[in-house]
């Protein structure tokens, strides 16, 4: 059992507690939010923050160069990919006409994001023409 400086020790405890809190809020929000567009708030923001805090706590706990490099990589990766995944899922949900919550006040994508505006996959057509030749 390593002995840390007391400040580092309490910092680790506080970071773990905050990370647990935010990650629990994420799970709770995913269950309790009224529709998918609000659920994605909990899933993307709170869960990413919680995982990031937990990873920083691990960095303070291990204090080795190799481990801290991996932790930085994981944190950056989570914070880069969560918005991309949420954007694509939200877009797919809107195109599938998943209903908004009754209390929603605005739908800015109405008439802007429709199925007609998106061209068919050009790659698929190319493959078909290749097969014909």
């Amino acid at each position: 059992m390593e002995v840390y400086h007391p400040i580092i020790h309490y910092l680790i405890l506080v970071l773990i507690a905050l990370g647990t809190f935010f990650t629990f809020i994420a799970g709770f929000g995913v269950l309790r939010m009224p529709d998918i567009y609000t659920r994605m708030h909990a899933s993307t923001k709170a869960a990413s923050l919680g995982a990031g805090l937990m990873l920083i706590a691990a960095a303070f706990y291990f204090q080795e160069v190799g481990v801290i490099t991996r932790i930085a990589l994981t944190t950056v990766f989570i914070f880069l990919t969560a918005p991309v995944a949420a954007h694509m899922l939200g877009r797919a949900a809107y195109l599938m006409q998943v209903k908004q919550w009754d209390g929603s006040v605005i739908d800015e994508a109405k008439g802007v994001l429709t199925l007609d505006d998106i061209p068919a996959d050009p790659k698929a057509e190319k493959d078909l023409s290749k097969m014909d030749n």
Partner: peptide, 21 residues
């Protein structure tokens, strides 16, 4: 909807990552 399930699965994965750490 199916997208709700995917969002919940994504959240479960991030929680699992936290548990692993």
């Amino acid at each position: 909807s199916i997208t709700d399930r995917i969002v919940a699965l994504d959240t479960m994965a991030v929680i699992a990552i936290s548990i692993m750490v």
